[in-house]
């Protein structure tokens, strides 16, 4: 049998009751090649310090709970493997651009509010009774938005976006991608309400096309593209308002 390999995991700790500000702590964790970084921090919690706090659930990159900055890059800890970093040290930190609640747990309430604000559900064009049957959608109409439904709200894109860090009110890539998802749905009639938000101070124009959000997205949603498409849509709305016979009356 080969010798037990040890990886150094440096964790940014923050205990709000005793720490003035975050501090680093290094743990030496024995690991096997099939172990993820999530399993690494679980090992720390089970064997070194039970107070270490982090969120996780599915362990298979579908729940979106275990996002962390791993060596400075926003990643899901469950699908990031220790073997890819060994023998170098791994640094683990709470997702960037969010307030740290405790250790790797961040305050997501701002994100939840933004998510609510974009109305992430179908707003029917007109009331429809059960007798009238289902909404029919062609494969082409389905293809318009399917990519944006893959979002798992992991907020890695928020941690990747400097504009979110600079302006915490910016609705941000993830919620805007979902805004786009519902706007693009042929069954939906809520575009006017959502575009008002997209074009607002908190909206798409906060984006400076860094593009890192799309780079880090574990589900290939390409939120950056959704944001930039809506810059064009918002500008179109703005100019069409002058051309429309109603004179922009809304």
């Amino acid at each position: 049998m080969s010798e037990q390999k040890i990886i150094e995991i440096e964790v940014l700790r923050y205990l709000p009751e005793s720490d003035e500000k975050p501090r680093s702590e290094i743990y030496k964790v024995p690991f096997t090649d099939d172990m993820s970084v999530l399993q690494g921090v679980q090992y720390v919690k089970d064997n070194f310090d039970g107070s270490l706090t982090f969120r996780w659930s599915c362990r298979m990159a579908i729940c979106g709970s275990c996002g962390m900055m791993i060596n400075g890059i926003p990643k899901l800890a469950c699908e990031t493997f220790i073997r890819d970093y060994y023998p170098k040290r791994i640094t683990v930190e709470a997702l960037a651009n969010f307030p740290i609640e405790k250790d790797m747990v961040v305050d997501l309430s701002g994100f939840i509010e933004k998510l609510e604000a974009i109305q992430p559900y179908i707003i029917p064009k007109e009331p429809r009774t059960v007798e009238e049957g289902e909404h029919i959608q062609t494969p082409a109409q389905f293809a318009e938005y399917i990519q944006f439904t893959s979002c798992i709200n992991c907020t890695l894109c928020y941690a990747a976006c400097p504009q979110v860090g600079l302006n915490p009110d910016f609705i941000g890539p993830g919620a805007l991608a979902l805004l786009h998802r519902y706007n693009m749905d042929s069954r939906d009639g809520g575009q006017t309400q959502r575009m008002e938000l997209a074009a607002s101070e908190e909206g798409v124009y906060n984006c400076s096309a860094v593009g890192y959000c799309s780079e880090v997205c574990p589900k290939k949603v390409d939120p950056g593209n959704a944001v930039n498409i809506n810059k064009i849509n918002a500008a179109k709305d703005y100019f069409l308002r002058f051309l429309s016979p109603k004179g922009g009356a809304k």
Partner: peptide, 22 residues
């Protein structure tokens, strides 16, 4: 007992090669 800690943004663009390129 909540006391959320907001990390500073100073020098954010030096922290990742992707940002440096940007």
């Amino acid at each position: 007992k909540r006391r959320p800690y907001v990390r500073p943004m100073d020098g954010w663009w030096k922290k990742n090669p992707y940002y440096v390129e940007y």
